[in-house]
Design a protein around this nucleic acid. Structure first.
Lengths: 162, 162
DNA sequence: GTTCTATTTGAACAAACGTTCAGATACTGT
DNA sequence: ACAGTATCTGAACGTTTGTTCAAATAGAAC
């Protein structure tokens, strides 16, 4: 708390005008992040074509997360410091995001475009793979964002295509 | 330290007969884990065929990590608590492991079996995808280990195959 | 300029932290 | 049984932690 306060340019006690305690500060940070993720994704225009929808999902996921390295870091590393109730609330939000990907995969599966024996696992796999970008990508590095997006789209596409 | 001590059935002070301080306790835990990972993988019999080697890598990675949930958790979550020197040493070990996967991908690429424009990124992607298993797999769940391995092998294979 | 509210300070609190160490205890070899 | 070594205890240390609160300060309304 003292560290946060000093970064804001204030004494630690002053923070308690804005949060009842440290736990809810963390929780609101994470909940806001997840809600932003969900509403940003839902605001995107969708495609009826599952292949198209999947490509947009890949692009959206990479870009959204790369724009918010700090929030993403916290959302992953601080999960264990949430109270059980707060944890399940964050998990529910994450679940909703995963579900939207799973929906795409299922649509593609029934349309015969994708071959995904288990859509739940496939969506975990795709998201895990995309999350990997956050660990190595640095702006101004060897590859442009467009190139990264292209490479990952290639892999995801082939991983699920019939 | 008091928590660790009580789990071992001893007072906190007694731990200092076994470690000079908390940092090196953490460091040795992580280093031992990474060295075990490397030597276990290197002890496996290799295949000349890149496809075969990749399939074995996938199986090895999933099984090795699922057998050590605690070590894996620590190896990922406690990285930020290492001193800079210790951090780079752990990173080097991780690098060596990633390199062995990258070698397989490169071999497959030059043999015309795989289509991986960037072997470094592809190896990150594969490992990230496989790591995802650790977050959801529970022994005795809906899928057997063999099934999980099969599903992931399918996806990895198609993601990199020509 | 005065009153009223909102915000910040600065000190204090209890608890938890990593670590140390003198003394007690347990083990080993003779 | 004894000496010598290895290990452990229990209390203490100095910090750091999250949090509280009376008093000081700043801001808004008239």
């Amino acid at each position: 708390m003292r560290q946060i306060a000093s970064e804001v340019g204030v004494q630690a006690g002053a923070l308690y005008n804005y949060t009842p305690d440290k736990q809810s500060l963390l929780f609101r940070l994470m909940r806001d992040h997840m809600q932003e993720l969900l509403s940003a994704y839902e605001a995107q225009d969708k495609s009826e074509d599952p292949r198209d929808a999947l490509r947009r999902f890949v692009g959206f996921h990479i870009r959204f997360h790369l724009e918010r390295p700090d929030e993403v870091f916290i959302a992953y590393m601080e999960l264990r410091n949430l109270t059980p109730e707060n944890f399940t609330e964050i998990e529910d939000l994450r679940r909703r995001y995963e579900d939207s990907l799973e929906g795409i995969l299922r649509d593609g599966h029934v349309a015969g475009l994708f071959k995904v024996p288990d859509t739940r696992i496939a969506s975990f796999a795709v998201i895990a793979m995309l999350n990997g970008v956050m660990t190595w990508y640095r702006a101004g590095g060897r590859l442009s964002l467009d190139q990264v997006e292209q490479i990952y789209w290639d892999m995801v596409c082939r991983a699920v295509a019939t």
